[in-house]
Design a protein around this nucleic acid. Sequence first.
RNA 1: CGGGAUGUAGCGUAGCCCGGUUAUCGCGCCUGGUUUGGGACCAGGAGGUCGCAAGUUCGAAUCUUGCCAUCCCGACCA
Length: 491
Amino acid sequence: MSKEIKSRGEDYSQWYNDLVLKGGLADYSAVRGCMVIKPHGFALWENMRDQLDKMFKETGHVNAYFPLFIPKSFLSKEAAHVEGFAKECAVVTHYRLKNDPNGNGVVVDPDAKLEEELIIRPTSETIIWNSYKDWIKSYRDLPLLINQWANVVRWEMRTRLFLRTAEFLWQEGHTAHATANEAIAETKQMLNIYAQFAEEWMALPVIKGVKSASERFAGAIDTYCIEALMQDGKALQAGTSHFLGQNFAKAFDVKFSDKENKLEYVWATSWGVSTRLVGALVMAHSDDDGLILPPKIAPLQVVIVPIYKNDEQKTAIDNKVSGLVAELKKAGVRVKYDDNDNNRPGWKFAEYEMKGVPVRIAIGARDLENNVAEIARRDTKEKKSISLDGLSETIVQLLSDIQQAMFDKAKAYQQSHITKADSWEAFEKILDSAGGFVAAHWDGTAETEEAIKQKTKATIRCIPLNNPQEEGKCILTGKPSNERVLFARAY
RNA sequence: CGGGAUGUAGCGUAGCCCGGUUAUCGCGCCUGGUUUGGGACCAGGAGGUCGCAAGUUCGAAUCUUGCCAUCCCGACCA
């Protein structure tokens, strides 16, 4: 069998691109830096989205939708915010085309220039807070807990499928609260929801932490994050939750009357995860044969492949399988019976492996005689003959086992790639060999952080929550420090 | 935006250095048949602005110049 996916060892970028393209998740598009998300990839995203949406609603949030376009003036109201986003914004300057007078298709109509340019949202804080100004008058209007599922555009220099595209899909939650403590609690609650989703649904272990000042979201007081580890030892920021303080309330003049009838600025949070999570999933779990998707979010959990030599055998298999499919569907399993006669079984086996379907059931005439089926699990490639009696219970259990095994494997990898470094030599050596997170002391200054980044390309991924306090010396400057922070090279 | 590479059918490619019949091969696609327990085989068939534009030449996929696009490595970032 020929390898369709380039091996991990040769070139990690190529390996990753192959997985996304040949796994049927996405395709390059005609538009620079953008991608086409194909049905398989979108179904995966939908499953993730639906689960997250459910978790948001369970914690009292509601969905709304705000405009794609942001008046330029809105973006300049919060100084740090504009500083962070201005250089990567797409700008709409005209609203009409006309036929080219020289007969070469269409040109921008110079008479249709906008008085005020519109920015295609790189994130929606500004346009949302402009609305919140009108919505919030009293403490009775608070808390305001709104989420938006949307697309945003950030004109990045360099793009990568799912991990960094010019346009991407995400959700952004924007909440307003009466007190700082309540807003901080919200920030942490959403971080926990992200971590829970990553670990329980994506089988992706993450480290919860807070960003250093220089990695903080533009306009935030504190940025909390979940950091995941990819199979090449590089870290990936998988989600962020920001405590915005009163920065946006002040910029957009959002005040409320409290119970004592005093006028106060509201306290804000924002939080988001994007289709980048799909990229994280691909990089964290796949192998050289293709994608490996966690059962809980896999678009297809079980595929059944019939093996037959003639119509008589096919009919016998059909009869048996139709009952099995009904049984599995009743048990809530996403199952497909692929009896397409155009492709042979071997082709189907390889195809569904590449697409990451967790469980494959093969049934042939021989199996029917013995009342068994061949069950193959994608994560370990293990194959077994299992009795057809009570097969659906076996499958449901197997899916659950695979979900757990995938998490355990990724967790073991993560744990074995968190290394303490107490000297500069050790620090560099770990980054260049095993990779992963390096727990090291840091003097707390942005200058040192930048110097380390320049020397090693490693950045502070986060300061873990509940970080143990211990006396130590900064890995670079030797100045005193009272806790270790996690460094890594990152996507 | 700097450095490197690539652009030939839906996909992957040979040919380019050293210009010369009808542009190579594989996969896929269509028709017919045989097949079906790890990417089937045989026969026949369809499918091409050789990235775009100029130039050199009797003649350009091939040489020259410009432009465009994509990928990789940087800087920037979810």
